[in-house]
Design a binder for these strands. Structure first.
Length: 425
RNA sequence: GGAGAGAUGGCUGAGCUGGUCGAAGGCGCUCGCCUGGAAAGCGAGUAGAUGGGGCAAAACCCUGUCUCGAGGGUUCGAAUCCCUCUCUCUCCGCCA
C-alpha cells in the first residue's frame, strides 16, 4: 500500500507507475473521495470538539442541574449529526481503502522500463551448461522411467498439476529442503521458521495477495482461511501490527512450506512436468530491514539464493525485472533462472524482491529508529531459496546419464547416506 | 464439542458502583545527578495514528480528532453498561 499522503501529493508518479507496470487502478476515484473525506472530517471533528467540551461541563456541573438539562438537549442534536457524518465517513473510508490497496508499488529508479519478460536484463550468468552425447530427456521422462515421479497416479488422487514422488524422488525432495534450510541457517544467518500452511484474510492482504489476486489463491470453503501461495505470506505477517526495536533489525527468516496456487490464468502453460503445479515445496527467505539498508539487503538475499545453485552446480543466470514484468508489490526484483537442457532454456527458479515499505504499511510493521523517536515502517524483502520442485527438475535434467540414471549432486549425498546415483527401481 | 475466566500502553498490572481517565503502580527504556568508571540510589521524561497552526524546512513547540481485542448499541458523555464476533487461558469430552 502506498502512503495516502504521497498519493495525494504525487498523483502523476502513481499514474506513471501503474502505466509502467501495466496495472489498473481507480486513482481518480480515490482522489475524489479523499477530498470529500477531508472536508467531512473537518466538519465532524469540530462537532466532536464541542460535544467533548460540553460533556465535560455537564460532568463538572452535575448532570441534574437545570443548565445541564438544557445542554443535554442541545447535545442530542449534535450527537445525531455526528452519527450521520461518521456513517458517511465510514463508507468513504471503505471505498478508499479498497482503491488504495489496489494501487501498485512504485518501481525503483534502476528498474528498466519495459513491456514484458523480453525486456528483462541479464546481469550475470554462472556455470557451464552440460553437454550430452546422448539424447537429452525431459525431467518428466527421466523421473517416470526411474519410477520416482508419478503423474498419472497424482491425477487420479488429486488432479492435473499435482505430482507424486516415490523412493529416491521423495528423498531428493526432502534432501533439498533440508539442504537449503541447513545452508541458510548455518552459513547465511537466517533463523528457521515453520509457519502454518493456512492463513487468514488479513495476512493475505498484508503481503498484497488480496484483494486484487483472489482468483490465484485456494480458499477453504466456509472459512476465512487460505492455503499459503508462498511462505512469504505467513512469515512476513509474523510481525504484522508490531513495533520492532531498531537493534533487532535486520530480522532474517528462512522457512519451508508447501505452496498452493490455483494457476487460474495458466491454462495450457507448462502442462507437463514439475514446472507449474498446484502444490509445490519452497524454502523462502524473508527479511525485515531498515529502509536505508534494503538495497544492499536485496543484493545479499539474491547472493544467498544463488549460493544454493552454485553448490548444486546448476547453471543459472540472474535477471533484473523490467517494469512490465515486475509485478504488483515489488519495487525491484531479480529472478534467478536455472538452465533446463531438455527445454534448451532458462526457467525461473527464484524470485528475489524488495517491497520497500509497501507490505509494511499494509501490515503495520514498524520500528523505532532510536528511543524516543517516531516509529517508521520497515522495508520487507523476500526471495525463494529455492523452489524445490523446479530444482528437482533441474537436477534430473542436468545430471542425467546415458543409461537413464541420475547422478546425485555431491552436496546432497550426505542426505542420501552417501548414495551417488539414482537408478531404476 | 460442553462449562467457566479473561483481552488495558514496549512488558506487567490497577481501574470496570459511567464524567476531573489516554489511563495509577511496577519493570524496561531515554536524559540528568552521583562515580575514576560501573552498579545501586535520586530526579525528570517515556503509547500509537491522523489533521491544523507556528516554521522556508527538519528538529521542536502549540492544538483538534481517534484508539483500552474488533464491530455495533445505550447515553449529553463509555476502558467502565448491553449485543455480536475474534482470540487466549482453565476444567471436562474427543483426538494425531
Amino acid at each position: 500500500m502506498l502512503d495516502l499522503k504521497f498519493v495525494r501529493e504525487n498523483p502523476e508518479v502513481v499514474r506513471r507507475a501503474m502505466e509502467q507496470k501495466g496495472e489498473s487502478g481507480d486513482l481518480d476515484g480515490l482522489l475524489v473521495r479523499d477530498k470529500e473525506r477531508r472536508d467531512l472530517l473537518k466538519e465532524v471533528e469540530e462537532l466532536k470538539q464541542i460535544r467533548n467540551r460540553v460533556s465535560k461541563e455537564i460532568g463538572r456541573a452535575g448532570a441534574d442541574s437545570e443548565a445541564s438539562q438544557q445542554k443535554k438537549n442541545e447535545m442530542r442534536k449534535i450527537s445525531t449529526s455526528i452519527k450521520d457524518l461518521d456513517d458517511k465517513l465510514r463508507r468513504l473510508d471503505a471505498e478508499m481503502e479498497l482503491r488504495l490497496l489496489s494501487l501498485p508499488n512504485i518501481p525503483d529508479q534502476v528498474v528498466p522500463r519495459g513491456k514484458d519478460e523480453s525486456d528483462n536484463i541479464e546481469l550475470r550468468s554462472w556455470g557451464e551448461k552440460p553437454r550430452f552425447m546422448h539424447n537429452v530427456l525431459a525431467h518428466w521422462d527421466i523421473g517416470s522411467n526411474l519410477g520416482v515421479i508419478d503423474f498419472p497416479r497424482a491425477g487420479k488422487i488429486a488432479g492435473s498439476r499435482f505430482v507424486v514422488y516415490f523412493g529416491a524422488g521423495a528423498r531428493l525432495e526432502r534432501a533439498l529442503i533440508s539442504f537449503m534450510l541447513d545452508l541458510h541457517t548455518t552459513e547465511h544467518g537466517y533463523r528457521e521458521v515453520f509457519p502454518p500452511f493456512l492463513v487468514n484474510e488479513a495476512s493475505m492482504t498484508g503481503t498484497g495477495q488480496l484483494p486484487k489476486f483472489a482468483e490465484d489463491a485456494f480458499k477453504i470453503e466456509g472459512t476465512d482461511l487460505y492455503l499459503v501461495p508462498t511462505a512469504e505470506v505467513p512469515v512476513t505477517n509474523l510481525h504484522r501490527d508490531e513495533i520492532l526495536e531498531a537493534d533487532q533489525l535486520p530480522i532474517c527468516y528462512a522457512a519451508y512450506t508447501a505452496c498452493f496456487r490455483a494457476e487460474a490464468g495458466a491454462h495450457g502453460r507448462d502442462t507437463r512436468g514439475l514446472i507449474r503445479q498446484h502444490q509445490f515445496n519452497k524454502v523462502e527467505l524473508v527479511k525485515f530491514v531498515r529502509p536505508e539498508e534494503s538495497d544492499q539487503e536485496l543484493e545479499k538475499l539474491t547472493r544467498d539464493a544463488e549460493k544454493v545453485l552454485q553448490l548444486l552446480k546448476l547453471p543459472y543466470r540472474v535477471m533484473l525485472m523490467c517494469s512490465g514484468d515486475l509485478g504488483f508489490a515489488p519495487a525491484k526484483k531479480y529472478d534467478l533462472e536455472v538452465w533446463l537442457p531438455a527445454a534448451d532454456t532458462y526457467r525461473e527458479i527464484s524470485s528475489c524482491s524488495n517491497f520497500t515499505d509497501f507490505q509494511a504499511r499494509r501490515a503495520g510493521i514498524r520500528y523505532r529508529p532510536a528511543a524516543g523517536k517516531k516509529t517508521q515502517f520497515v522495508h520487507t524483502l523476500n526471495g525463494s531459496g529455492l523452489a524445490v520442485g523446479r530444482t528437482v527438475a533441474a537436477i534430473l535434467e542436468n545430471y542425467q546419464q546415458e543409461d537413464g540414471s541420475v547422478i546425485i549432486p555431491e552436496v546432497l549425498r550426505p542426505y542420501f547416506n552417501g548414495q551417488e546415483k539414482i537408478t531404476e527401481y
